[in-house]
């Protein structure tokens, strides 16, 4: 708990930088608007103002600064505008409405979760195979590790199109992308976890003449639990990124990715920013849920000092 104050300090500093940055970022737009509204702006014409930096223009027009925080279509929305937009689209809309971020969030989240479940299940199964079969280990493991170094996310648009050609649309193609993004981290993490018992532990089981399945259930599997949760946390964030990116290049009409794209294309930055923050909150919540589950499980297993 002693890090609460430092964390708040860092978050406060980030917010402060954001709030200050709003002024120069939005000053040109504000000045143009103020001119149209008949206020006195120095210099007087947009062409002349192009020669100024945002900062220089702010110093020339200090009385316009408050206006930079309330533009309809700002370059950089201020924190209260983003918060307001989020309040609007999360709390004040019916959750089934296309205007509701909860609706879009659920679209993204559902394919994330479906994909995550598929990816982690397959990942755990493959890891079990790798640990028990040497040929599988030598054949597959180098590829699983190499897959961590290449941007497999780039496959996303093609998966959507390929599956679309077979008439599969909607949740499933996105789930497939989430699945393969969470699959590899889980394979690598679980293999590490299932191999984490040291030679002495394995020898102990040999002195008992324990079978391979007894070794798996009594030693390897429980020993791998901390690694499993670490992989889950990586996997779920990767799955969410996968689902969002899958919504981008394909003209999806719902989901966080679609909202970001819509806000961008219709010049409505507030929509983009609200979707971005909602996605970040979703990711944080998912990771937090797994962290809590991890803590609970490890404590119940006696692996974490209470």
């Amino acid at each position: 708990m002693k890090s609460v104050l430092p964390i708040l300090t860092i978050v406060g500093a980030i917010l402060l930088i954001w709030v200050v940055a709003v002024i120069p970022m939005n000053m040109h737009l504000t000045a143009d608007q103020a001119q149209r509204d008949g206020l006195v702006v120095t210099p007087a014409t947009p062409a002349e103002r192009q020669g100024y930096s945002g900062l220089g223009l702010s110093f020339a027009n200090p009385d316009l600064i408050p206006l930079t925080y309330n533009l309809d279509r700002p370059r950089l929305p201020s924190p209260h505008q983003v918060a307001g937009e989020m309040w609007d689209t999360i709390a004040l809309r019916n959750v089934t409405s296309r205007q509701s971020l909860v609706y879009h969030g659920w679209v993204t989240l559902s394919s994330t979760l479906v994909g995550f479940v598929i990816g982690t299940t397959l990942g755990i199964l493959l890891a079990i195979g790798i640990v028990h079969n040497r040929a599988m280990d030598m054949s597959v493991m180098p590829w699983a590790i190499a897959s961590q170094t290449i941007p497999i996310l780039a496959l996303a648009p093609m998966i959507i199109v390929m599956m679309g050609q077979f008439g599969i649309q909607g949740l499933l193609p996105k789930a497939v992308i989430s699945a393969y993004l969470s699959f590899f981290p889980v394979v690598v993490g679980m293999v590490k976890g299932l191999r984490s018992p040291d030679a002495m532990q394995m020898d102990l089981l040999r002195t008992y003449y324990a079978s391979a399945s007894q070794g798996f259930w009594k030693l390897r599997l429980p020993a791998s639990v901390p690694y499993l949760f670490a992989s889950f946390k990586i996997g779920i964030s990767a799955a969410l990124v996968g689902a969002i990116v899958a919504e981008l290049p394909t003209g999806a009409r719902a989901g966080f990715g679609a909202r970001m794209l819509v806000g961008d294309q219709y010049g409505n930055p507030l929509v983009t920013w609200a979707a971005l923050f909602a996605a970040a909150i979703t990711a944080a919540a998912l990771v937090a849920i797994f962290t809590a589950m991890e803590r609970l499980t490890l404590r119940r297993m006696g692996m974490a000092a209470a």
């Binding site: 370059r75 946390k233 969002i244 966080f256 983009t272 971005l276 996605a279």
Partner: peptide, 15 residues
């Protein structure tokens, strides 16, 4: 580091 930061792309492209 755990957030989907790649979502800032449209904003940066605009800026």
């Amino acid at each position: 580091a755990a957030l989907p930061i790649v979502g800032i792309a449209p904003i940066f492209v605009r800026w």
